[in-house]
Nucleic acid binder design. Structure first.
Length: 342
DNA sequence: GCGATTTGACCTTA
DNA sequence: TAAGGTCAAATCGC
C-alpha cells in the first residue's frame, strides 16, 4: 500500500510540475509579439494537467488508493471510458462495462445550463453547443411534463470521450431547455491539434495582420480576433467552443469594459451559485470570476454555477463564463492583470 | 449500407 | 422498490 501511495504522489507531482512549467512558458508568451493562439494552446495544456491531477485525487477518494486508477487516468485522456477495442471483446466486458459506467458516473463533473430556444429560429431540437452528440435514450421523468433526452458524445467509441448531456424542456417555460452536462470532452484534443496546425500557418504572416485582427464584438468593451468569430456570429446559439472562450477570457484584457454591470445576473455571483460542479467530488474546488479591474478572483465556494444561455441578442455574453466549468484551482491571491501585456 | 434515432429491457442508486 | 440512467435491437433516413 505504501508503494501505491508513492506512485500516486509521483504521478500527482508530475502532473502539477508539468502544469507549473507550462504556466512559465505561458508567461513568456504573454508578450505583444506572441500570438494568442499559442497562448490558448498552452492554457489548454495547463488545464489538462490540472484536470488529470484533480481526477486522480477524485478517484483516489472514490476508490481508495489504487495505482490502476491513476494509471488509467494518466495513461490516456480517454481511458476512463475503456478502450474501444475492449468493449465487447471479452465475455466479461458487457456486465463489467455497465458497472463501470455507473461508477464513473459519480466521479464525472457535472453542470447545467438553461437554453432558451426562440420560436422561428429552427434551432429547437438541435441545441447546437459546438459538439457532436448522439442520442442514446429518452425517458419520461416523474412529475415532469416533458421527457428527458440522453445524449453522449459522438466520439465516445472512436476517442473514448465520456461527455454526456441530458436535455429536458422546462415545465415552467417550454421555450427553455434545461441541459445537464456530465463529463468534459476529451475529444477536444482533435481541435487542439487543428489549432496547432493553424497556428503554424498563421504565424508566418500574423505580424502583417495584427493591426486589423481586432474587431469590436457585439458587446462593448470586448474585443475578439476576427478569425475567432463565426461569420454568422450574431449571438444566436452559434456553437462557441468553450475552450476558445476560456482562453480568450483569460488572456483578453477587457479594456474599459464594465463587465460587472453587463453581467449582473445573480446566476453569476459566486455567492449565489445554485448547482454544483463536482458536486459529488470529495475535493473542494475554488471558482473564480473577473472583477471590474479584470482581475481573476477566487472564492471559497463550491465549484459551482448555473449558467443561463438565452439565445436572444440581449443576453448572449453569459457564454463567456463557460470557462468556470474547468476544474481549475487558483491561488486565492492570484491576480492576472493582462493589460500590461497588450 | 451506414449512421442516427427510437424504445423496451435491464441495471444502479437512493 | 421506484425512479433515473444506459444498453442494444429494431427501425428510420440519407
Amino acid at each position: 500500500m505504501e508503494k501505491t501511495g508513492t506512485l500516486e504522489c509521483r504521478t500527482l507531482i508530475s502532473e502539477l510540475t508539468q502544469g507549473r512549467e507550462l504556466a512559465n512558458q505561458l508567461k513568456n508568451y504573454l508578450h505583444p509579439a506572441k500570438s494568442h493562439e499559442a497562448c490558448g494552446i498552452l492554457v489548454e495544456n495547463i488545464l489538462s494537467s490540472y484536470e488529470n491531477a484533480f481526477s486522480l485525487l477524485n478517484c483516489m477518494a472514490m476508490f481508495g488508493e489504487t495505482s490502476s486508477v491513476s494509471a488509467a487516468i494518466l495513461e490516456s485522456p480517454n481511458s476512463l471510458a475503456g478502450t474501444p477495442t475492449s468493449e465487447g471483446s471479452n465475455p466479461f466486458s458487457k456486465d463489467q462495462n455497465q458497472r463501470d459506467v455507473f461508477k464513473k458516473r459519480k466521479i464525472l463533473p457535472k453542470w447545467s445550463e438553461e437554453v432558451r430556444v426562440c420560436s422561428g429560429t429552427g434551432l429547437e431540437g438541435t441545441l447546437d453547443d459546438g459538439y457532436n452528440w448522439r442520442k442514446y435514450g429518452q425517458k419520461d421523468i416523474l412529475g415532469a411534463s416533458f421527457p428527458r433526452a440522453y445524449y453522449r458524445c459522438t466520439h465516445r467509441h472512436t476517442q473514448g470521450c465520456l461527455a454526456t448531456k441530458q436535455v429536458q424542456k422546462s415545465d415552467e417555460d417550454p421555450s427553455i431547455f434545461e441541459v445537464n452536462y456530465r463529463g468534459r470532452h476529451t475529444c477536444i484534443q482533435e481541435r487542439l491539434k487543428q489549432k496547432k496546425e493553424d497556428y503554424n500557418v498563421k504565424e508566418v504572416d500574423s505580424n502583417n495582420r495584427q493591426a486589423e485582427e481586432m474587431v469590436i464584438s457585439n458587446e462593448p468593451g470586448i474585443k475578439l480576433p476576427k478569425e475567432e468569430i463565426d461569420p454568422s456570429f450574431s449571438f444566436l446559439p452559434t456553437p462557441i467552443v468553450s475552450d476558445d472562450v476560456e482562453t480568450k477570457f483569460l488572456l483578453e484584457p477587457a479594456k474599459e469594459s464594465n463587465l460587472t454591470e453587463s453581467y449582473t445576473s445573480p446566476l453569476l455571483s459566486p455567492a449565489t451559485s445554485e448547482c454544483n460542479y463536482f458536486s459529488e467530488s470529495l475535493c473542494q474546488m475554488n471558482d473564480f470570476w473577473v472583477d471590474v479591474d479584470n482581475n481573476l478572483q477566487s472564492s471559497e465556494s463550491d465549484f459551482a454555477e448555473k449558467i443561463s444561455t438565452p439565445t436572444s441578442v440581449t443576453n448572449s455574453p453569459f457564454r463567456y463564463w463557460d470557462f468556470t466549468a474547468d476544474p481549475l484551482e487558483l491561488d486565492p491571491s492570484f491576480r492576472l492583470d493582462a493589460s500590461e501585456y497588450f
